[in-house]
């Protein structure tokens, strides 16, 4: 498949021809609030964040087509509620990376701890290293590509989107999953309730191939297994509809 993209900054090809100056923001001198205000007010442009030193909420709430590169590791909720633009972290991220991402791209070169990409509605999250527990918990349409392993309870109650894992998955993968496709190249410690292995049909190979390309990951879609929902939990049973409707009426 596509060669692994060497570039660390995710920039649309159309913009490379007209390079814009990069605005440096040093968190050793600038407050986090000032940084995020600057990013929220920008309509376009590129920013480089220096000395994050594990700060929380770096580049949170971006909703324009800007490019942010963070040099160093970040704390909790980096690029939370992200839309449209791209955030690239050259380091690790703690809890809640790209939580509730709506669109755009978030990429980190290192590993993420718990709940990466949680509740994401859209966009692409790329973690080149490992992701910890509950990666993609309650994902609602986001695509997440993890170069290494994911921890236990990943894609718990996943509703839509794709989780791609080039390494192994921890225990209870896809527990209580509604929809969403989980592609794992390595071992799965165990599947959660109502999660099953499924066939890789041509459309899945195409989707996976596109995601690996977008993420710049050099891997063969043929090496992956697909997992998803068995749709056998009570909420999938039409018999329970009457009780549900009656409950709401009451």
């Amino acid at each position: 498949m596509g060669a692994r993209a060497g570039c660390h900054l995710h920039v649309d090809p159309g913009r490379v021809s007209a390079p814009r100056p990069v605005t440096d923001v040093d968190l050793a001198e600038t407050s986090l609030r000032d940084l995020n205000r600057m990013l929220h007010q920008a309509r376009q442009g590129s920013f480089r964040v220096l000395n994050p030193r594990g700060a929380h909420a770096v580049a949170c709430g971006i909703d324009t087509d800007i490019t942010v590169e963070v040099r160093g590791s970040v704390g909790y909720y980096c690029a939370g509620m992200h839309q449209k633009g791209s955030v690239h972290v050259d380091g690790n991220a703690s809890t809640g990376l790209a939580e509730n991402i709506m669109s755009g791209t978030v990429r980190i070169t290192g590993s993420a701890t718990m709940s990466a990409g949680a509740t994401g509605h859209g966009g692409l999250v790329v973690i080149e290293g490992n992701a910890g527990a509950r990666c993609g918990i309650s994902m609602k349409g986001v695509d997440i590509v993890v170069g290494g392993n994911v921890g236990h309870m990943s894609a718990f109650m996943a509703q839509a989107g794709n989780l791609v894992v080039l390494g192994d998955a921890g225990a209870d993968l896809g527990d209580s999953i509604y929809e969403a496709n989980l592609y794992v190249r390595g071992e799965v410690a165990s599947l959660g309730a109502d999660a099953i292995r499924k066939d890789m049909r041509p459309e899945h190979v195409r989707t996976l191939s596109g995601l690996l390309d977008s993420a710049g990951m050099d891997a063969d879609p043929g090496d992956f297994k697909r997992y998803g929902t068995a749709r056998s939990l009570y909420n999938f049973h039409i018999d329970d509809i009457d009780a549900e409707v009656a409950g709401r009426a009451g």
């Binding site: 594990g54 704390g75 290192g110 921890g151």
Partner: peptide, 22 residues
């Protein structure tokens, strides 16, 4: 509990950093 505690330690930029498994 959080990575930011570690950033001030000597040579932390070259430390191996990982999350302890459950």
């Amino acid at each position: 509990s959080e990575y930011r505690s570690i950033t001030h330690l000597p040579d932390s930029g070259h430390a191996s950093v990982w999350e302890p498994a459950p």
